[in-house]
């Protein structure tokens, strides 16, 4: 337990001093929470083009928007489209941290003395995973919280605000996001055990999470209807992905390989 705390603590202490990682962990989430808030603000004030409204008709037919006037509907749709961005955080933040936490140690050769301490590989992997996952989930929830506080003030009505705390979003934030985080951590670990440059690892990791991003962009663009069902479905997919990725990650994270193949 003490080892575990020390490992996670060191990971974070190091992260806070690593400008590149810090940038992804802090700056990107700030950007991602700012966008939907700006949308909320703007869409409540800008006059609506009737053509746009027509295009959105299909979206507006969803029962959660029932009984809204155009301003309300516009706000609800625009902001919740942006909220999908929150689901990128549990992917991006952990991939970056995990990539730096393993490849970074390879590069500075600090992995060898660490592996020489009496700790099992599983525990080490778990601690590194946790150190990467917690900021990912934490930032996601924090952003969601900040957004809800802003929405309280900026929403045109109670009805609009209700859209943001719809069970669909609760499923997305509290079930899907943690599952995505696990997947992202594992992707980071798998990539790191094969690559010897942290930036390459980060980029490769991002490449692997690209399909997930495409999915979200599809949602934002309105090709994919989102509702509770979509997110539950996505959560099941993510859970299955987690199982596969965790299996691969644990298999690939072998001390001998990562120790001797770092040149």
């Amino acid at each position: 337990m003490r080892q575990f705390r020390a490992l996670v603590g060191r990971e974070w202490a190091d992260m806070l001093r690593n400008r590149l990682v810090f940038y992804v962990v802090i700056f990107v989430p700030v950007l991602m929470v700012a966008l939907p808030i700006i949308m909320l603000f703007v869409s409540g004030r800008v006059p609506i083009n009737p053509q746009d409204l027509q295009e959105m008709e299909r979206t507006l037919s969803s029962p959660i928007f029932a009984g809204m006037n155009t301003v309300e509907a516009m706000q609800a749709v625009m902001a919740s489209n942006m909220m999908v961005l929150f689901l990128m955080m549990p992917l991006m933040v952990p991939v970056t941290i995990a990539a730096y936490s393993i490849v970074g140690e390879k590069v500075t050769h600090s992995l060898e003395p660490l592996l020489a301490t009496p700790i099992t590989t599983t525990r080490l992997l778990l601690a590194k995973g946790l150190a990467a996952a917690v900021p990912g989930i934490g930032m996601t929830w924090l952003c969601y919280g900040v957004f809800l506080i802003a929405a309280r003030f900026l929403s045109a009505s109670e009805r609009v605000f209700a859209v943001f705390v719809d069970p669909m979003w609760l499923v997305a934030m509290f079930i899907l996001a943690p599952l995505l985080t696990v997947a992202a951590v594992m992707v980071g670990i798998i990539v790191s055990s094969r690559v010897s440059d942290p930036r390459a690892a980060e980029q490769l990791g991002s490449l692997i999470i690209l399909p997930l991003m495409v999915l979200f962009i599809g949602m934002v663009a309105g090709f994919i209807q989102f509702n509770s069902g979509t997110f539950v479905f996505a959560a099941i997919g993510a859970a299955l992905g987690d199982v596969v990725l965790t299996y691969l990650g644990v298999k690939l994270f072998q001390r001998e390989t990562i120790l001797t193949r770092w040149k």
């Binding site: 080892q3 705390r5 020390a6 190091d14 500075t108 050769h109 600090s110 060898e112 301490t117 009496p118």
Partner: peptide, 24 residues
Amino acid sequence: TESPGLYDRLSARYNLEFFAAMYG
């Protein structure tokens, strides 16, 4: 180890305290 492999961004003291915790 062959190369010192320290945590360069952390203080000397932190480096040692971390390993002390790892070794119990």
